[in-house]
């Protein structure tokens, strides 16, 4: 469904009719949902659900093949002592590590785990369109089936919405049927919740399969009010078009409690239909071990500590 043409007036008209976001109200709703108390059976379910939604991520200048392989091994069997632990949602790396990740996953029985590549001059997005396209093509040709692109925040803030829109359209074209497109808004740089709502709709109109909060390189990242507004955006988009777009908070989600709060936000905002790795992912690295420790605690009744889960 074509809601928006790629012209300035069309994009402006479309974004202008969106209702505003009252920051105080959104923050208080998010805070209230943060008080939900998730215990016993629902906690057990939520932990496994969260594990299956993790985009297990390493995005460091110091990444090596060894580090990436270790991460892939962990992704397939997060807890080697317990085969009932689900695999994670995906592996997320820079594009030059995609081939390593894909090959290693395939070799160890992780064929079903997708490899996501951050792209379009991640994290800043400050490069020419040609470079961004090549960045994406590289990742696709190396076997990435998910592309995490960044939007041009400078263009967004300066009002050049056409540039933001068309870049997403181009990258989406490259992805075609080969890969899912996640569009990173970097909400920490957009700052206002009105901007978050506008950027969410802009990305969805341009063809995003997922909207993602952050690169993880900027703070604040996936705050509860931001995720709330993005979940409202995908819910409204579904009502308009009948299409469900996914949401991926990333950055700052480190504990089981944080992750469960995210799931509560999903359940009470977009709805339970979104509680699947197809529509909700959590970009994280340290989170997985905390989930595993909490899972052990539920199973064994005591908290084992960090040396009973593997480092990577």
């Amino acid at each position: 469904m074509q809601l928006v043409e790629g012209t300035d007036s069309s994009i402006r008209r479309f974004l202008k009719q969106l209702p505003g976001v009252d920051q105080v109200g959104a923050e208080s709703r998010a805070a209230m949902l943060g008080t939900r108390s998730i215990k016993t059976a629902s906690k057990k379910w939520a932990i496994d659900c969260a594990i299956s939604m993790i985009d297990l991520t390493t995005l460091e200048g110091s990444d090596t093949d060894g580090k990436v392989k270790a991460l892939c091994t962990k992704a397939v069997h997060p807890d080697p002592t317990d085969p009932t632990v689900p695999s994670v949602g995906a592996i997320c790396v820079y594009n030059d590590k995609v081939a390593t990740a894909r090959k290693h996953l395939d070799a160890i029985g992780g064929q079903s785990i997708p490899v996501a590549a951050v792209s379009t001059a991640f994290p800043s997005g400050r490069a020419s369109l040609e470079v961004k396209k090549q960045d994406t093509l590289d990742a696709l040709n190396s076997g990435a089936t998910e592309i995490d692109m960044v939007i041009d925040r400078g263009a967004f803030l300066s009002g050049d919405l056409v540039k933001v829109f068309t870049e997403i359209v181009y990258i989406k074209e490259l992805c075609g049927d080969r890969a899912h497109l996640k569009v990173i808004l970097e909400t920490g740089e957009l700052v206002t919740l009105d901007n978050v709502r506008k950027a969410s709709h802009l990305a969805m109109a341009a063809g995003a399969d997922f909207i993602k909060t952050s690169t993880g390189k900027i703070s604040p990242a996936a705050t509860a009010p931001v995720v709330l507004v993005m979940l409202e955006a995908v819910r409204d988009w579904y009502e308009m078009t009948g299409i469900r777009i996914g949401v991926k908070p990333a950055g700052g989600i480190r504990t089981t409690k944080d992750a469960i709060k995210q799931l509560v936000l999903v359940r009470e905002t977009a709805g339970e239909e979104w509680l699947t790795p197809k529509l909700f992912r959590i970009g994280a690295s340290a989170l997985l071990n905390d989930l595993l420790m909490q899972r052990m605690k539920l199973r064994n009744g005591n908290y084992a500590g960090p040396n009973y889960v593997t480092l990577d």
Binding site: P19, V21, A26
Partner: peptide, 11 residues
């Protein structure tokens, strides 16, 4: 009619 609708609903 120009209210921030999601927060209005909460209110």
């Amino acid at each position: 009619d120009d209210s921030p609708i999601d927060q209005t609903v909460e209110g």
